[in-house]
Design a protein around this nucleic acid. Structure first.
Lengths: 229, 229
DNA sequence: ATATAGTGTGTAATTTTTACACTAAGTAAT
DNA sequence: ATTACTTAGTGTAAAAATTACACACTATAT
């Protein structure tokens, strides 16, 4: 139930944890603030929700403004609204995470006014974050860990064609633990959402691995079935 | 007559899906609106987030005002913010669900201004809901289904002392499917969070079942381990 | 005493998960 | 062309978890 009350001066924003994977490391995109409060601190990218935007649209816009990317997998995961989380007033923020394959053209653009610059930072070595952004990040990572066990979202971090070792690598980095190669392959293949290609990895100085593709059609059919690691 | 809308970027509210169980049915608490828009429609209880309230506090307040209950298990689960979800302006709402044991003194109180009355309605037979509240409810049920499979929240719907059959009943109602009695008991007991009491059910005209209690201490120790149905 | 209604229990078959190590294939250096 | 190097790719046996399934027990009511 909602009523329109005249007294509010609360601000509603969206903050994004943009997870990226470059083949080596999992990173998130942080911006260096150019404004008080927390000037010169690193922070999660975020913005006020526009008057005519849906929440998803707003999140997508923030991502687009920062990276030039569209059509990225994003998911709302938690609202943070402690009355004191923002030193200058009441700001309720809704957190989204996104999964992005890095490399090539997908570097963040040089940025708007409120940030000096943006950087992909490895999640293994993050700076102190502004506001309650550490908490927001932590919860995001937790959510994504849970999610990756049950839904095939790891593909979103990989190029269209990838090897099973790369896929396993993503799982290991996000879950923060080693997985057994044979069991991993057995399981991931058994879900039947991978399409083995007639193509091999290129440019490696050892035996080239077979490339696979995520098969969205097959996945759609399975939907509802859960997977688990 | 046209209402004059304050000039606001957005209004931020909380809506609650209060799940209750009376031993027979799973119900949710709905209010009958006494104001436009959607006057005379049934709706989820909700309210604007107060200036000095955290989100959890706000949800707890809404629940308290309606039921007089405190200390109830509540969980934030999703924000709804379609620009047109409220006919009179932009209202972003954050949804919470709660789990409540019904019976005895826990009936909803007669209500404040915006609602004529409040009623526990069985989820198997809900009326048309105001705004996008059907969507909010659907998502809440979905979340709770997932949650009940992985965390011992079903206890929140039961009295302190309960029988295994009652517990199974709750699972069946929420998951929407029958479970095997022997397997259910085997599994739920194996988690080790139930304490068998020296007491039997009373007032039944057949063999009385043993009563159990949920053991929070044991649960705290297990935490992190997931359960699954 | 008998009918009734729900309680409480075990096992075998199947499926899933886990642990574990070597050969194959390609590249690079000599 | 031989060798060294590096990662790809594969199977099996043991253990654990899940499933399917039916009947005797116990308390009450008549």
């Amino acid at each position: 139930m909602e009523e329109i009350l005249p007294h509010l001066d609360s601000v509603f924003s969206i903050d994004c944890v943009l997870f990226g994977f470059d083949g080596k490391e999992v990173k998130i995109l942080l911006i260096e603030r150019n404004e008080e409060p927390f000037k010169d601190w690193w922070a999660l990218p975020g913005n006020i929700v526009g008057a005519d935007e849906s929440l998803d649209q707003s999140a997508a816009r923030i991502l687009y403004e920062l990276t030039g990317l569209r059509g990225i997998y994003m998911e709302q995961y938690y609202a943070f609204g402690d009355p004191n989380r923002h030193p200058q007033g009441r700001v309720i923020t809704l957190a989204y995470y996104a999964l992005i394959r890095l490399g090539g053209d997908k570097e963040p653009r040089p940025i708007s006014t409120y940030a000096k610059r943006a950087n992909w930072m490895p999640i293994t070595d993050l700076p102190k974050l502004a506001f309650d952004h550490q908490k927001i990040y932590d919860k995001g990572l937790e959510k994504i860990k849970r999610r990756i066990k049950h839904q095939p979202i790891a593909f979103e971090l990989l190029p269209e064609k990838f090897t099973l070792t790369q896929l396993q690598h993503v799982y290991e980095l996000i879950l923060g633990k080693k997985l057994d190669k044979r069991n991993f392959r057995k399981k991931i293949v058994s879900f039947g959402v991978l399409k083995e290609l007639d193509e091999k990895q290129k440019g490696v100085s050892y035996r080239a691995a077979t490339l696979y593709r995520f098969d969205k059609r097959k996945y759609a059919k399975l939907f509802g079935k859960e997977i688990s690691f």
